[in-house]
Amino acid sequence: MIKLKLLEIRNLKVYFNTEEGIVKALEDVNLEIDKGEILGLVGETGCGKSVTVLTVLRLLSNASTISGQVLFEGQDLLKLSEKEMLKIRGKEITMIFQEPMTSLNPVFTVGQQLMDVIQLHMNLDKKRALERAIEVLKLVKLPDPDYIVNKYPHELSGGMRQRVMIAMAISCEPKLIIADEPTTALDVTIQAQILGILKHLKEQLGVSILIITHNLGVVAQICDRVAVMYSGYVIETGTVAEIFQHAVHPYTRGLLKAIPPIEEKVERLNVIPGNVPNLITPPSGCRFHPRCERYKDGVCNAQAPSLRQLTETHTYMCYNPYLPEGVVEEVNV
């Protein structure tokens, strides 16, 4: 029996028309998230992480090409009407953004903003909506929620605002929360608290979380599985253990090496040489090949590698991966 995934992204391709040319933001993205799972989506700035999730919610207004499938509980979101999407957004799938300082509307109180969403999706009257708002503020462990509902965003600290954002995200009992760099703008101690709350909510509410980050530390802390993106492709996915211990893609390895060690002093941070590729005229074949240390001429630059499977949970896209000893067979998916 095939278990139905909560979200499945199949061969997603997204292009934009700009004055300079066609930006090939996503070329072939494949992702899946199970119920009650936290998936980390990692990659450098500009690799297409945000475009991917904005496509899921159909929030891109200026894309010239969108093809592939985004199956949410088996239903292709790309085929829904705008009206039907309004019932998905904020209800089934919610989002937490990177900038808690600017993601909330400055001229409405926290309560007004929460209640707008709650009344829209839960069919509650004003009084019940307010109760629900206070309830979710409690869930994200904000002190004195009765007081905070009447505050404007600027009266709260960054960490508190991000909790309000999370409260909004869970207010209508969603099935999937997408968190786009939820802790990047916050202090390290606040970061840990926010991650703790997310993990707690997953356990308490059974909600799935897709967390976008470029911080592998965050991934190690709360994720079950990881997907690594590079220039419009998901180039490797696996469980946290698989990726951290047996990454096979040279790019993933490079990322892991670039984590600055805490214990020892290093002369120079490890970096992957070269730049993130231009998306208008991307490199041929595997888009990582100009920066790759295992580049094979005539192979890597000829055609984009197809998706290969190592274990049931571990997939990658590479012609010349770091395979564990003993493994020679490659299985095309």
Binding site: E44, T45, H214, N215, L216, G217, L255, A258, I259, P260, L269, V271, I272, P273, G274, N275, V276
Partner: peptide, 10 residues
């Protein structure tokens, strides 16, 4: 930016 740094084109 993040933990992944790229070399700037000076």
């Amino acid at each position: 930016m993040g933990s992944v740094t790229t070399i700037m084109d000076e």
